[in-house]
Design a protein around this nucleic acid. Structure first.
Lengths: 157, 157
DNA sequence: CTAACGTGGATAATTATTATCCATGTTAGT
DNA sequence: ACTAACATGGATAATAATTATCCACGTTAG
């Protein structure tokens, strides 16, 4: 039971997009390169972020991706949800239904597990891209500068 | 990202063992049969519960499994931990280290994810086998009676 | 019209999870 | 002793989830 690495990659991708100047756009391949991720699979991740309305895509020669929302309006939770999907961490396997032949779709554990998941999610809702970025700036300024320069090279428009 | 079904099965297995009279023992195959689980794989799960000191095993002809702790001392969390292992829900993939070539083992997300996981776990710690069993009795009395009779048939010693 | 980009579907590779098999050790009953 | 019923533990296979690749297609700047 591990979170997909795609969630982490997506968070950093969005953190990068957050550094883009207004109107600029960054090609998917550049981002995947910066993250050291597989380009083709990463493109799929970006699609999920587009579908979730977190980023927008621009096709064509000078195309790429950029944020659709303000960083303070993108929670880590939103990225998690976009990549992992809405299915819950726990889904009853039917053991309970089998043993007690009940009609319900819930089992003895459902309530507890839902509560646990809500609790987990609520923490992910407490941090936004803006707050993450702030933390990044505070602790890794020099590296962030390098990133900025790299972005100037790679961005288009 | 889904919890292993083994966790659910283990919870119900322990709930069954909780209904055993003192000194009695229930063979692994009987339990797996009641749960509709694969007998061989289920035996592995039971081993994990033994290793975690939640249940004890008795080898030999009249052998089987029984609880090692009192139901109020077994938290759902303990079962989760026994089956899922101690590895965390999130483990940094190294994207951060690659981008910022930092030496640390933690990344920007580590703190948040740890907090989220603790929060999730704390809910699992709030419910015990005793409290689950109480809920079971309150809502499914007739079925629990049937289970009790089945146990009388299958138990040994 | 072409080159650089995103889209979306099919499919393969990899990894995690679930399941099976088998040889071995233990114990009750004969 | 011997046997039958159980647990143990290692090796390995089957299945499912995740990650990765490929390719045909649509869009747009030059």
């Amino acid at each position: 039971m591990q979170m997909k690495t795609g969630v982490e990659q997506s968070v950093y991708a969005i953190l990068i997009l957050n550094m883009l100047p207004d109107k600029a756009v960054l090609p998917g391949e550049a981002i995947s390169q910066q993250l050291g991720a597989s380009p083709t699979y990463f493109q799929k991740l970006l699609r999920k972020l587009v579908s979730a309305d977190l980023i927008t895509s621009v096709p064509g020669v000078k195309g790429g991706f950029k944020l659709k929302k303000k960083p303070e309006d993108i929670r880590v939770y939103d990225i998690y949800l976009a990549v992992e999907g809405q299915q819950s961490l726990y889904s009853s396997s039917g053991v309970f239904l089998g043993m007690f032949d009940v009609e319900e779709s819930s089992c003895l554990l459902t309530n507890l597990m839902e509560e646990a998941e809500l609790s987990w999610k609520s923490v992910l809702k407490s941090e936004t891209v803006a707050s993450l970025f702030e933390e990044l700036n505070e602790n890794y300024q020099p590296k962030v500068q390098l990133l900025h320069e790299w972005i100037k090279e790679k961005m288009v428009l």
